[in-house]
Design a protein around this nucleic acid. Structure first.
Lengths: 341, 341
DNA sequence: CTGAAAGCGCTTACAG
DNA sequence: CTGAAAGCGCTTACAG
């Protein structure tokens, strides 16, 4: 038994041409049923498996999509990996995974392109205008996941993206906070130039403005646990000027805030401060946190990503941005405040 | 500018043969420095990138390793993905990711093999003896991560594996629990046939036996949050016969236990029960949990996996099992008990 | 150091 | 329905 039998070996055993073997393994090719049976039997006997690499070379379709991510500690992203790779697998595609900092993204992308991926999805990273252009010229669709191209940043090359309706989500939280009587709302930003953080903040500000309010305070947590902790410490340094609500750009930072508030500042949530997050990661539902948050609909986002990818792979070349509704999930970290008057 | 320039296009522009272009892009090939420069300049001008697929076809080396996982909710695995893919990237390898249930692993593996991966690492899944045989015959190294082949299960085909010293880890916990005066130790198992769960339990039992004790109770949490919750409810149903310590096969279940104990059973940890986990995931350090646990040294495990993979890819074909030390991390969920006498 | 040629394992017109 | 042939984009002996 040969180590790696090829279509030729199978052909010889089945007494047909190598082309026939190829046809037996391609759906919809014209082979007589009896011939196909004979070929498949021979293939089974030899342990033959078509070589996907050779097929890729000739069809120019690898059925591989590159997935670029930067950090997995925020539980939202493992979820995305899981769902996205399953959705792609169901459609006969595979994911080549790259973990890298945004700074390394360009080098990594160059690498990906060598592997002739059919598409690229970038989550928790963005690409430079140069690479966007390269991809566009190479005809490789790129979809940004949970982020949107900065205006002008991609050098005019339209790039698809899938996001939640982040501004609406931020507004939902703002309205709820106003409705429940909060007067000193603080915002814990993610990355200063991340569209998710920017849009959620804009929505929050919209809602506050409609109630004649502004942001009481603001700090930057960089979507990082330790940085968020520092930011919270700074925000609550002055006991006389304490926020009565803290809205964090994602759950990961909201949980960091919860921990810091309780265990380091001795404050009670929601009695002393209300806390709200964004994402609805699994931990948000744990009783220790019972975090009020905005749910991102991962399944719909993943579906949209897959659809966008496929419609571009299969020729309709226009880039599109899709936006998925999100919903407020009220749990236990927000308390109605009496209006001081 | 051509969409996807090939080595021929570059050759034409640089006025050399296609072979020379190939040499300019392979480290250590013999090209005159001046020629190489001219070729690289031409390549840059055309935006040429060598086609990794074509290279793979001829070198029979894809520089891709398949990573098979089943679930990512347990934060330990995202960590593994992150570290492993980075370690591999640093060595010029890439990871093709597959998420699947153990039941589907065979079909998925067949798929992976078509892509001519250079190696496979299986974390949170195992493979059947049939596939193990296929991989052995195809000369594709497989390393099991955080699990060990069941005796006899792989049909005599030796498979490499990387695990912590799970039995020692279990023993460490058992000894500590005995030393701190616990008399009614319960074990929350993961999967009944998982080597990790089995070994950790065996270590625990060793330590208890040396103190003349046995397990007070035992339940199965299947490494799942919801199942672990049910198991804890069952374990603590009878107030008169309550465990004074609960050792869970991993942190994910230990946290589920903590949440259930506190919020559903109204018990205090560690005052009413001590709780210990295994892994030392990031959340274990969060103040809300301050979980005492056994640390798995992910970095050393990842290193060992990479080394095992590479030594087998590069010809030394013996499968080996490597075992990495683990250490007790004492935080706040274990309390010293007075001996009732 | 360099080029011409063979070939990796397939798919796919093109004839028959 | 089937086979012979060309070719996908490279690497790598083999000569020179």
């Amino acid at each position: 038994m040969k180590a790696n039998p090829t279509a030729h070996d199978v052909a010889r055993l089945a007494g047909v041409s190598q082309s026939a073997v190829s046809r037996a393994f391609t759906a919809g090719a014209s082979v007589a049923p009896a011939t196909r049976e004979r070929i498949l039997a021979a293939a089974r006997e030899l342990g033959y498996r078509p070589n996907a690499i050779a097929r890729t070379l000739i069809t120019r379709r690898s059925r591989i999509v590159g997935l670029v991510m930067s950090y997995l500690e925020n539980q939202f992203y493992p979820l995305v990996i899981e769902r996205l790779s399953q959705a792609l697998q169901r459609n006969g595609y595979h994911v080549l995974l790259f973990i890298c900092e945004t700074a390394e993204a360009d080098a990594v992308l160059a690498d990906i392109l060598q592997y002739q991926v059919d598409g690229i999805v970038m989550a928790s990273t963005t690409l430079s205008s140069g690479l966007a252009q390269d991809c566009a010229e190479a005809g490789i669709p790129v979809v940004l996941f949970n982020r949107v191209a900065q205006l002008g940043t991609l050098g005019g090359f339209a790039t698809s993206s899938v996001t939640s309706q982040n501004r609406e989500g931020g507004r939902l939280v703002g309205e709820m906070l106003v409705r429940t009587g909060h007067r000193r709302v603080a915002w814990l930003a993610g990355l200063e130039n991340a569209s998710t953080s920017l849009d959620r903040e804009a929505g929050l500000r919209d809602a506050l403005a409609e109630a004649g309010m502004g942001l009481h305070a603001r700090a930057v947590g960089r979507y990082d646990f330790a940085v968020a902790r520092e930011a919270v410490l700074a925000l609550f340094r002055d006991p006389a000027d304490r926020p009565d609500a803290l809205f964090a750009a994602n759950d990961h930072m909201a949980i960091a805030a919860l921990e810091t508030l309780r265990s380091e500042l001795g404050l009670s949530v929601p009695q002393d401060v209300s806390v709200v997050g964004f994402d609805n990661v699994p931990q948000a539902a744990w009783p220790s946190f019972a975090l009020t948050t905005v749910q991102q609909d991962v399944d719909r986002m993943v579906e949209a990503t897959r659809d966008l990818l496929f419609e571009q792979i299969h020729g309709e070349v226009m880039a599109r941005s899709v936006t998925v509704p999100c919903a407020l999930v009220e749990r236990g970290t927000v308390q109605t405040r009496k209006r001081e008057r």
